[in-house]
Design a protein around this nucleic acid. Sequence first.
DNA 1: ACCTGAACACCGTTCAAGT
DNA 2: ACCTGAACACCGTTCAAGT
Lengths: 186, 186
Amino acid sequence: MPTPARTSIEAIVAAGRRAVANDGLEGLTMQRVARDVGVRAPSLYKHVRNRAELVRLVIEDVLRDLGAALEAAATSRQPRKDLGALARAFRRFAQQNPNAYGLLFSRVPQEFAPDRRLLEEASAPMLRTATALAGPDRALPAARTITAWATGFVRMELAGGFQLGGDVDEAFEYGIDRLAAALSQH
Amino acid sequence: MPTPARTSIEAIVAAGRRAVANDGLEGLTMQRVARDVGVRAPSLYKHVRNRAELVRLVIEDVLRDLGAALEAAATSRQPRKDLGALARAFRRFAQQNPNAYGLLFSRVPQEFAPDRRLLEEASAPMLRTATALAGPDRALPAARTITAWATGFVRMELAGGFQLGGDVDEAFEYGIDRLAAALSQH
DNA sequence: ACCTGAACACCGTTCAAGT
DNA sequence: ACCTGAACACCGTTCAAGT
């Protein structure tokens, strides 16, 4: 006799994100997610193939949020202004979602790799801004330079990599300014 | 009656690095390392407090190698030349040690955090080059800009983040050239 | 002083049995 | 059609017992 589902993929992914937010990727266990949504661990396998797929779904959820934050930040149509806004939105997102951010551009288990279309959508605002700033011929390497710098900066900051003192906010603004100057077509 | 040690901390760390090289951090299990050095898992706890400490020792081992590679790369005393050499050495190291590299500037469990002195030693060549390039007043933010860009670029490359086509080598050289120009004092 | 098997509390995952 | 307990093969870690 069919019984109605007592949980849903949406609830499961949301519980997965809470687990990651609180305790990082290792905090995302099937047992904990199951408890959180009110079933036993084996039941999760009716909604998700395995833990790797759940991790991927959580990463994609995070990526969607990051994409939306970037999209909302780059609206001035003034490329240098948008560049700064994008970088700051990027950093703010990472600071507000440190564990979730740590999942992006990271470990390679392949099984965790998010859908390519999502990656492209999240990078669209940066590519658009880079095109306006550096010109269409240099758009791709320019976007990669900015994105590499921003992801690297934020990751080092989150990992506690800036140990030598100095003003980290200032270093971030310095980077924005220098990159904007370096990538602008003259 | 005392019995001589059948293994050593050096052998254990080396086995840990092999496990990481082959299968990433999740491949570093106490049982596997124990088998590799010829003892049973509980014996490892005579040499190491727990897995977290072993992971930290492996990370520090990787960091020492990276520091040596960077030190060997920056020898020309021509800042712009050294900048390129450092960036390329960084990238080469990551390509040759992808799983080991993934451990650096990464996950935050705090227990895994390498010794600060090692971090400083590994970043010394970059700081020296940045000082020569951007001047002492701007050395720290300049070093951070370069390091952030290099770590971010390499990480995205390893994670398969550059999906939009284009020439990745060219984007890397473009980044070196643009950063060298942007950070040079005029 | 070091190594071991046994044990404990956890994992992810499968599967037959329940409704 | 979904959920469950039991089971399996793994983890990390502790500890008393062996040499």
